[in-house]
Nucleic acid binder design. Structure first.
Lengths: 345, 345
DNA sequence: CTTGTTAATTAAATCAATTTAGCTACTTTT
DNA sequence: AAAAGTAGCTAAATTGATTTAATTAACAAG
């Protein structure tokens, strides 16, 4: 608790030994090379305890070149999806005695680059990054350095780097299967205009499914710009409905929230007028008048695996060994996709 | 971008000067005590640029005893209220060249104590803490140390420390005035059983208002335990409704979300059957079938002021000078408090 | 009794930056 | 021309911990 002041030197003085011995004991380095008398070790530990010794991280870091610190850059830490992952990362990193710096890129490449600089400058031992639109080159350059790196949620094609990703194609297929089982054919996808691997894979899964079931002609992918979503949303949903779309799939939780808001404004009732499937959970859906069918991502596992990978990468000097972990999505069926409800009205 | 390797020494070698000169120039220390020829300075800066010099934080930190790092411990970083504040803190701290460590206490004192230890150990220059239930003693001990400290959102009574708080009593009065204006008398408050200054002040404001308007006899404060809220919520709301409560005030956003969920389950329509006022905003309310009347807290200002205070505290050696900033709440009137709607049904 | 071995310990270098005290050359003053 | 002042620069100490190389003391082996 107390703000530390006692150093290894203080302990050495009080215990009547050299600072080297204290260091050996404090680091449990006792072995064939460093031998310390059991009595002496005991005494040193006692004095350390008495003086409430806390090692100086700056000194340690300077000497070892390591900070026991990890940098995590997500697109927006106030997005519940990333906030939840952040919590898990924090918790798991703590187990390994690592502390975490967080940063938000706001889907802005220059901000991302800046954050990377700040964190590298702070001396983080490794970086976890959610690549944003247009960040490909920045990430490639970063991957060329010797700094341990793990990409989260999205990846960069043809880049030899560790990843923790969702099986986004499968996720899209799950969403589609659910709707198709309900008899939907005119299914439209609401997506972002940003070029992101997770989005692309979801779009791919959507298209595969539509074609496989022979609904290709009904297919529509709406790609919205990141800024000023709500106006665009009302427009594209309106377009879809005028084409008699039977279902909308929203490619992210932010899109789903905005989409449901728009449908509310347009007085469109879900699932009576149109079926809906979303991605990710959100507290927002808890108060919605019907339960939302959505793809559930294994948040805890995301946080867990990311830390495992980055710690592994830090501890191996061989940077060439990369691991990609692909996590499985799960379909949570609510009422928003129950197309048959129409008959009830 | 590149992982740094060039040191002050490299620059000195390449520029043909001593490391001291490089340090003077890099730190802009040029003045009466440290004189550097303009030409030399220029050359040093050029070499630094060329070698892409990034100062080693560990060395700097070791020498100066400062880390340019701030620790922020909230109760839960995945609660949107704190996540939003965290973003603002991060942004404002960046302006001062500070980086931020976040931690979540989960309203658990021993976890809080542990986090404080970790952060002190990491050598943070200052701490921003949201005190949790039962943390009084821990905070008092912390305040006795020389570590700059700012309490956020909640305070500890009779403790000489800087604070950034909401005027919670006023906030409660605003909420009450709004309901009373609508003709409500049987107003009940849903609160936590935790002993927290913000909660206490909101309860106080509620009681003051009820008594002042002569509704004391109708007053009911329900204090829920932090764990397993939903069951308790259904019970207490049921109790309230059986007493013909006309309005519920929820003392926090988490309580409001749980409360509205419970009302949904109980098939109680807002505001037809009961009026509702909440604290804080939440994305969750966006999809609710009616707009929620709530107390809006100045989130941006919270983040801003906290950083201002902690930076000020860090830069003054005189620890005795404490500042308390009390921010003003704002009432955002939605439809959930429009009691008169009853007549329309 | 010398040599070798090993247990126990320590002095000193190192990490990268900051900062104090001091040292040259000049220039200015008297 | 001696004294004083100053511009420009540098050597070296310092920060706290880690780690290498060296040292001492004790004991066993030859």
């Amino acid at each position: 608790m107390a703000v530390h002041k006692t150093t290894i030197k203080d302990i050495a003085n009080k215990a009547g030994v050299s600072i080297a011995l204290v260091s050996f004991v404090m680091n449990n380095k006792i072995g064939r090379n460093y031998r310390v008398n059991a009595e002496t070790a005991k005494k040193i530990l006692a004095v350390a305890e008495e003086l409430n010794y806390q090692p100086n991280n700056a000194a340690r870091s300077l000497r070892s070149g390591r900070s026991r610190t990890i940098g995590v850059i997500v697109s927006d830490i106030s997005n519940p999806f990333f906030a939840d992952i952040a919590r898990r990362i924090e918790d798991n990193a703590y187990k390994y005695n690592y502390t975490v710096f967080f940063g938000s890129s706001d889907e802005n490449t220059s901000k991302l680059e800046n954050l990377i600089d700040v964190m590298v400058n702070k001396g983080v031992d490794g970086l976890v990054v959610v690549p944003c639109h247009g960040s490909e080159e920045v990430i490639r350059k970063l991957a060329e350095t010797s700094l341990p790196l793990v990409l989260l949620d999205r990846t960069i094609s043809d880049l030899d780097v560790s990843n923790v990703l969702l099986n986004n194609k499968k996720a899209a297929l799950l969403a589609m299967d659910c709707l198709i089982r309900q008899g939907c054919r005119r299914i439209e996808l609401i997506s972002y205009s940003m070029s992101l691997s997770n989005i692309a894979d979801r779009e791919y899964g959507y298209q595969i499914s539509m074609k496989a079931h022979g609904f290709g002609e009904y297919g529509h992918i709406h790609r919205l710009r990141f800024k000023d979503i709500s106006d665009q949303m009302i427009r594209v949903l309106g377009e879809g409905l005028s084409r008699e779309a039977e279902a909308f799939v929203f490619a992210t939780n932010t899109l789903a929230v905005e989409g449901l808001k728009a449908l509310n404004k347009m007085n469109v009732i879900v699932p009576r007028d149109v079926a809906v499937v979303g991605f990710d959970d959100s507290e927002a859906f808890d108060l919605y008048y019907t339960t939302l069918t959505h793809i559930k991502q294994p948040i805890e596992q995301f946080g867990y695996e990311v830390v495992e990978l980055i710690v592994k990468a830090i501890n191996q000097k061989d940077r060439s060994q990369c691991t990609t972990i692909v996590l499985n999505p799960e379909l949570v069926e609510g009422n928003s996709s129950c197309r048959h409800v129409k008959r009830l009205f």
